[in-house]
Design a binder for these strands. Structure first.
Lengths: 177, 177
DNA sequence: AATAGCATGTAACTCGTTACATGATTAC
DNA sequence: GTAATCATGTAACGAGTTACATGCTATT
């Protein structure tokens, strides 16, 4: 065993919400959970094949327009069981994050280093843009209380992503006003 | 080209501070920059070989005790140039983080889900322990102003790690008091 | 008709983890 | 003496990225 293959659980969880095509999954990864997990379509399609071989999902072929085939996948009872095992098991490790800017900063010894201002200015811009985008998404998705109640976990993690960016920006600004 | 090989720059940066063995590097990864990057010795030793073949580092063999050989690596002029190119280049992408707990949370639809309390309690414990450890390290490394002045970047990233954990804990507590 | 987006796949490659393997030294 | 740590390496595997490849559909 080398790694954990969390991707399979995410795909199962998303199919557990509703049947989806590989392309649908790709978009959810981009839009909804991209802050906390990433997956390219080149990783999703093979994983769908493996999950189907393991009888955790099945698919039906749909025709859009006149010719365009798409495979709509659904989760099976086996798949649900396998997903539930993961989702309700303890999460006892924190997957450490990676941050290239932070590493570059580590090698700066002096407060007077000529590069510090440019480095911080750049990061402030990046993280402000990210924060703006997240605030926008909150506005779009959760401006009504009903949405919060129906997708509470999604709401919470978006709040967390927003907090995180605000905290990052706050640190940047405090360290280098 | 598939990925960025940031590890090589980190090794060069650490050797730029002072000559080190592979084992020394391993410990720095565990202790100092583990919050933001991880590397096992099985990744470090081959990378040292590659860097030496590229003439970016060299080594001398030292004998500890009577027999134990160790290879002490130093950075070359080429290595310094290569490192500087990286460290002073723009960091225009944010490497997205991964967090398994957050993903499990995403799939919880209702505020009344019976698992929520246990999930949050577990995470509070984990992140509190991490925060305690970081506060401890700040006390050890940076209780004197001279240390802050001599290793300003290291100080800043430790502050950031502390902020981040405090923010995480704060979110956990606010969402599930 | 051209462009952007929908839709699915494979190939090549690197990154990173876990496990295997060996031996010396220090502290108890 | 024995356990923990120092010290260095390789092997096997899975995870993840980038690039290659193809074709349909909707919008302007």
């Amino acid at each position: 065993m080398a790694q954990k293959n969390i991707l399979q659980y995410l795909i199962l969880g998303l199919l557990n919400q509703s049947p989806k095509t590989g392309y649908d999954l790709k978009r959810v990864f981009e839009d909804d959970i991209g802050e906390f997990w990433q997956a390219q379509h080149s990783q999703i399609y093979p994983e769908l094949k493996r999950l189907e071989q393991a009888d955790r999902i099945t698919h039906v072929e749909l025709i859009a327009g006149t010719k365009l085939k798409k495979k709509q996948y659904s989760i099976t009872a086996d798949g649900i069981a396998f997903f539930d095992e993961w989702r309700y098991s303890p999460t006892s490790e924190i997957i450490a994050s990676k941050d290239e800017f932070i590493l570059k900063l580590y090698f700066i010894d002096s407060k007077n280093d000529a590069h510090l201002d440019a480095m911080f200015t750049e990061q402030k811009t990046l993280h402000q843009a990210k924060l703006d985008h997240l605030l926008d998404r909150r506005q779009t998705l959760f401006s009504q209380q009903a949405a919060v109640d129906a997708h509470y976990g999604h709401y919470l993690i978006l709040e967390h992503a927003i907090n995180r960016e605000q905290d990052y920006l706050n640190w940047l600004t405090t360290a280098r006003p």
